[in-house]
Design a protein around this nucleic acid. Structure first.
Length: 426
RNA sequence: GGGGGGAUGCCGGAGCGGACGAUCGGGGCGGUCUUGAAAACCGCUGGCCCUGAUGAGGGGCUCGUGGGUUCGAAUCCCACUCCCCCCGCCA
């Protein structure tokens, strides 16, 4: 949700920023400004009548006889005029809210303008792309030979885009989770296992509704939504609260299963476990004072890079262009990991500063010296388990099909599973 | 699934048609006293919106949510939502 006060005071920067995202948005903003003006005009009218009504009603209490009758008579007229005006105000308000909640966060000036992946800006390449003395296989070949994923049976049970993870894949999953949690815990993140079924308000508050409705699973009888990322329940954790500035920044590391319908991606990444309806993920989430979110954004990014460097995965950091950013983000970094099996970089993590966009919808504020202010929220993937598993398999594969897991994971894996081999699974 | 009880400010808890934005207690903040602290005493202490200069001031809304009755609703009526307890089932 946009800050109407800020728009009213100085609409130009916001209009320009929105136009950089998508051409039509500037017109939407103008419509919004018009509605806001209308609303204020009618509000003044209505409130003056209400003030009159309040004054009069008080007077009735102490009046008697003829005077009282006269007063009630005239107040009845005020009441009727209000009844005429109020529906108009309500509908303007409704329209205003519907439009305002549809508009995305205006991008930060440092965000490159563009429409698709081609327009993303590569910030840096890190690590060495491995070279192989043999033809590297892709993760499906490797994993199936190891017996650690079972896509066919999963399809029989649940349909396409599901998998069973077995044996070594599971050991690796727990190791990745513990590796990330230990690192983030040491940095002051509070580990969280959040609810993954959430109410509509949480989806709305994080900006996934109404924007991405088609991507979200809904339960039939209970009207609960399945979170596509723990960002949703983590953001909603402090919904409606006024936080004490001493507690900020609040940093959480949420571990949860994520559910995505992936509507409209038929035929895309259909092979393997790259794009599933269900996967597990460790997600970082921060609440900060408005002035500190840009520093926090870089901090979350540094955590992501530390995790990947620790695992020894080659990646590149990308600044996502205006057209590719999530609805709530003002700026977004993606990290793309090198996948030898595909011979290209693929998205592994994402890190967004949502500024006050989600927090305003969630009504999450901080009590500052000069009044209450909307906090800023940020989110970043610590570890998308499935895709990280793909990256480990493809980058560290050996010609015999075995895969040694990187050393930082060893403390969390039984010794016999530190190298994924044919004996790693039934 | 069956039965019962609730929803009021940061927390507890009154109020049940007209000086109620709300008694009181706790907490928090400030002060008096004290070498310091505690105790005691005094004062302050919700949010949102409009107007105004992001000031002072003024106004409106807000007692779970939405509707209704009324000149006037925290208080009466209707619907919904949520929370809690007991029984049953259950990881």
């Amino acid at each position: 949700m946009l800050n109407l006060k800020a728009i009213r005071e100085d609409p130009e920067p916001i209009r320009n920023a929105l136009a950089r995202r998508e051409a039509g948005l500037a017109d939407d903003l103008d419509h919004l400004i018009e509605l806001d003006g209308k609303r204020r005009k009618v509000t003044i009218e209505v409130e003056e009548l209400r003030a009159e009504q309040n004054r009069g009603s008080k007077a009735v209490g102490s009046a008697t006889g003829e005077e009282r009758e006269q007063l009630i008579k005239s107040l009845r007229q005020v009441s009727e005029r209000l009844t005429d005006l109020e529906p108009g105000l309500a509908s303007i308000h409704e329209e205003l809210l519907a439009l305002a909640s549809r508009l995305p966060n205006p991008p930060h000036e440092s965000v490159p303008e563009g429409v698709d992946e081609e327009d993303n800006q590569v910030v840096r390449d890190v690590g060495n792309v491995p070279s192989f003395a043999f033809e590297p296989k892709d993760h499906v070949d490797i994993a199936q030979r190891l017996g650690i994923i079972d896509l066919e049976r999963a399809a029989r049970v649940s349909g396409s885009r599901f998998t069973y993870l077995l044996g070594g894949a599971v050991w690796t999953q727990w190791a990745l989770v513990r590796y990330c949690m230990d690192m983030l815990g040491a940095k002051g993140f509070v580990p969280v296992v959040p609810p993954v079924l959430v109410r509509e308000e949480a989806m709305y508050g994080t900006g996934f509704l109404p924007a991405s409705e088609a991507q979200i699973y809904v339960t039939r009888d209970d009207d609960l939504y399945l979170a596509g990322t723990s960002e949703v329940p983590l953001a909603a954790l402090h919904q409606g609260e006024i936080l004490d500035p001493g507690t900020l920044p609040l940093r959480y590391a949420g571990y949860s299963t994520c559910f995505r319908r992936e509507a409209g991606t038929y035929g895309k990444d259909i092979r393997g476990i790259f794009r599933l309806h269900q996967f597990d993920k460790v997600e970082m989430f921060s609440f900060t004072e408005p002035g500190n979110s840009w520093d926090e954004h870089e901090f979350l990014l540094s955590c992501q890079e530390e995790i990947l460097k620790g695992l020894g995965l080659p990646y590149r950091l990308v600044l996502v262009c205006t057209g590719q950013m999530g609805n709530a983000a003002a700026k977004q970094y993606d990290i793309e990991v090198w996948l030898p099996g595909q011979g290209r970089y693929r998205e592994l993590t994402s890190c967004s500063n949502c500024t006050d966009y989600q927090a305003r919808r969630l009504e999450c504020r901080v009590r500052l010296e000069d009044g209450n202010q909307t906090v800023h929220t940020l989110n970043g993937t610590a570890c998308a388990i499935g895709r990280t598993l793909i990256a480990l398999l493809e980058n560290f594969q050996r010609e015999d099909g075995s895969v040694p897991l990187p050393e930082p994971l060893h403390p969390y894996i039984p010794e016999e599973h530190r190298v994924l081999g044919p004996n790693g699974a039934p």
